[in-house]
């Protein structure tokens, strides 16, 4: 289970972006979180990915309560959650080639030897051709870069996947292709999904259930 329980978070202690948000994703389940821009749903996604320490509330991941965030979190806990962000341009280190980008999590965790095989397996799964893999981010389109960012999130075979507005910048065909790649991965591994977005039609079609942001907010400020 991925359980967010009465989470309050923000970027200034005195003025949190939201108060008391709760949300649960069961293993293998896909949940769409629907909300207007600026409501704080992306911050909640960052909390769930252990990237942002909440001011209050709990995150329980597979029965273990998370007590440390970012670098302080145990590596196994951190890498159990894969993240895909809205803007591939800012989410990719401009100096790495797409191959290096996808292999980076393996190299960072000291499993360099597996990198070549894993990249070779992931690239076709997200629809990247070999000639694209040697290029750097500024030499590929947004859609192609987002495919690489999705592959990077899948590299360590996470049990949970968080897609924060993954397709907001993309055209219909690339959107459908990326969603299909996520669903294929989930069918193979049984991973849970939290998809954050503002497109109701898309999330309804994609996810098992869709939650409105205002229904997440249980506790009053």
């Amino acid at each position: 289970m991925l359980e967010l329980d009465s989470v309050t978070a923000g970027y200034e202690r005195r003025a949190p972006v939201f108060h008391g948000a709760s949300l649960t994703v069961a293993p293998g389940e896909s949940v769409g979180l629907l909300g207007p821009s600026g409501c704080g749903k992306s911050t909640l996604a960052r909390v769930a990915a252990l990237l942002h320490r909440p001011d209050a509330g709990r995150l329980v991941l597979d029965g273990t309560e998370v007590r440390a965030w970012r670098h302080r979190a145990p590596r196994a806990q951190r890498t159990a959650v894969g993240v895909v962000f809205q803007q591939p341009r800012t989410a990719a280190d401009p100096r790495l080639t797409l191959t290096e980008l996808i292999a980076e999590p393996l190299r960072a965790t000291g499993r360099r030897a597996e990198a070549a095989d894993r990249v070779a397996a992931l690239a076709p799964a997200v629809g990247l051709t070999p000639d694209l893999l040697g290029r750097r981010p500024h030499e590929v389109s947004d859609g192609q870069l987002q495919r690489a960012c999705l592959a990077r999130a899948l590299t360590l075979r996470p049990r949970w996947l968080i897609c924060d507005e993954m397709t907001a910048m993309l055209d219909a065909s690339t959107t459908a292709a990326l969603v299909a790649a996520v669903e294929t991965y989930r069918a193979e591994t049984g991973a849970g999904l939290l998809a954050v977005g503002h497109d109701r039609v898309l999330l309804n079609r994609w996810c098992d259930r869709t939650v409105d942001w205002k229904d997440c907010l249980t506790a009053a400020p």
């Binding site: 629809g127 219909a172 065909s173 969603v179 299909a180």
Partner: peptide, 19 residues
């Protein structure tokens, strides 16, 4: 036609390959 079919309120199937 493929572009329209990729919409989530239609077939939601991508066009194979890349431009």
């Amino acid at each position: 036609r493929g572009l329209l079919d990729a919409l989530p309120d239609r077939a939601f199937t991508p066009i194979p390959g890349m431009p």
